[in-house]
Each structure stands twice: as C-alpha cells, then as structure tokens.
Amino acid sequence: MGHVISMGAALFATWLLLSGHFTGLLIGFGVASCLVVLVIARRMDVIDREAQPVHMTPRTCGYWVWLVKEIVLANIDVAKRIITPGLPIEPHLIRVKATQRDELGKVIYANSITLTPGTVTVDIDGEEFLVHALSQEAADDLATGEMDRRVTALEGEG
C-alpha cells in the first residue's frame, strides 16, 4: 500500500509540474488521469519495492552528491585525454565484483559505472561485471571498490 501511495504522489507531482495550471477543473483531470495510471499499473503488477524503492530513498541523496562529484572529476580527466594531441588512452576490459544483494542494487551500480566517463559496463554475468575502461587510472579507481561499497550501503538492511 505504501508503494501505491508513493507512486501516486510521484505521478501527481510530475503532472502538476509539467502542466503548470492550478485551477480546480484541470487539477481534477490530473487526479483522474493519475488514478487511471495507478489502476493500470496495479493490474500489470509493477508496483513493488523495485519500482518504488522507498526503503532506500533517504540514503540516495548523499550517494548522488558523491556520485556527481566523481562524475565531474572523471569528466575532466577524460576531456583532458581527448584534447591531448597524443591521445594518451589505454582502453582495456576489466572484471569487477558486485556485492549487491538484489537486482536493483546491481542496476544502480552498473549504471553508476556507466555514467562515470572512463568506465562503461559491457556485460553483467551474475556477480561479476565486465567493464571497459578508457585508462589505467579509471580502472584502478574502480578496482578500489569504493563505489561498490557505497551502493551496497545504499541497499541497507531491508
């Protein structure tokens, strides 16, 4: 039930922000369309803890701040490599261990790796990710496992 409420709230907030109309009739239409979507999503059985991960929402803010900082640093590094005339890159594939328990955590970890320039997740094989790294530094950065630890902490106990 909590997941239904959070999804309804998210849908209605999106509707309000995108429409920008705050008169009674139009808000009524918004509520009606959100309810229809909720009923359909309920029938499709997609409202669960994976679609609405409220159990990790409070902890995501800190993780996002850290991730944005990492992405900015990686961006500057890769941009420098691209504009250097000699093209000092060393592309290679590495294998990275993922310690997350469920699929949602693994998806967050894989997408975080891909979002950081310099590393791209190529294949997911159970507990192991195949990652393409643009440089030795980017690969070493990932091999320290700090990102993995942070995503696992994001999953929490539940």
Binding site: V78, A79, P117
Partner: peptide, 14 residues
C-alpha cells in the same frame, strides 16, 4: 566503438 562511448558520456553528463 567502446572508447567512443566514454566520449558520448561526456556530452551526456557534464
């Protein structure tokens, strides 16, 4: 193509 994805990532993020 794999290393070009890193470059596309720069456009998409920063």
């Amino acid at each position: 193509v794999y290393s070009r994805m890193h470059a596309a990532g720069i456009t998409d993020t920063m």
